[in-house]
């Protein structure tokens, strides 16, 4: 099955989404690769995880990613809103460390709608905001044959049903491939 034919991916444009779980970073980069264009990564200064350009080079070109170091959550949200509203970048990834309130989440939604960009918040388990369009839980799965198998669970969806998919990333053709459910 080809990547572009996937029904569930990418999630609706001009909305903000949330992703949690150990495979969240992979989800973010797969989404960036799928959407194309420039990606803005907004992270707080306290965030110790360092994304590695040599690692994500197989998803997007590192020159297509700009990241902003912010002082606190307020700045993170302000920068994300600004970037979403500008409509220049196709994806804005943010890593808030506190749960978003309904007002903040709604503001991000409006900014994404104005700018026609996609927003993605990488959150910890159970820190979701009600304003998010969809929420995903991504976990890497061990498989004997392939090394990039992931389980993607759609755990919140404002405009559809919930589901579970098993997917893997094909580095050579840079696309996402779904494993047919029959195999599992």
């Amino acid at each position: 099955m080809l990547g572009p034919d996937l029904q569930f991916f990418p999630p609706p444009n001009a909305r903000t989404h949330e992703v949690c779980g150990p495979g969240a970073y992979a989800f973010a980069f797969v989404l960036a690769a799928r959407l194309g264009g420039h990606c803005m990564w907004v992270r707080g200064r306290s965030d110790a995880t360092q994304i590695n350009p040599n690692g994500f080079a197989e998803y997007i070109a590192p020159s297509e990613l700009t990241f902003c170091n912010t002082k606190d959550q307020t700045q993170t949200l302000a920068v994300a809103e600004e970037a979403l509203r500008a409509g220049v970048v196709s994806l804005v990834v943010m890593t808030p460390n506190k749960p978003l309130g309904l007002t903040q989440g709604r503001r991000l939604q409006l900014a994404a709608r104005d700018g026609k960009s996609t927003g993605l918040a990488i959150i910890s388990e159970g820190m979701g905001s009600n304003a998010a369009e969809t929420r995903w839980r991504c976990t890497p799965v061990f498989s004997s044959g392939d090394s990039t198998l992931h389980k993607w669970e759609l755990i919140k969806n404002k405009s559809g049903t919930l589901d579970i998919w098993y997917v893997w990333w094909d580095t050579a053709s840079r696309r996402l491939i779904m494993v047919p459910p029959a195999i599992e």
Partner: peptide, 17 residues
């Protein structure tokens, strides 16, 4: 956009690899 964000968080905080 980088300029605009830079007025908020400082231009040197917007980085690339």
């Amino acid at each position: 956009l980088i300029t605009r964000i830079g007025t908020r968080i400082g231009l040197e905080n917007i980085q690339r690899f």
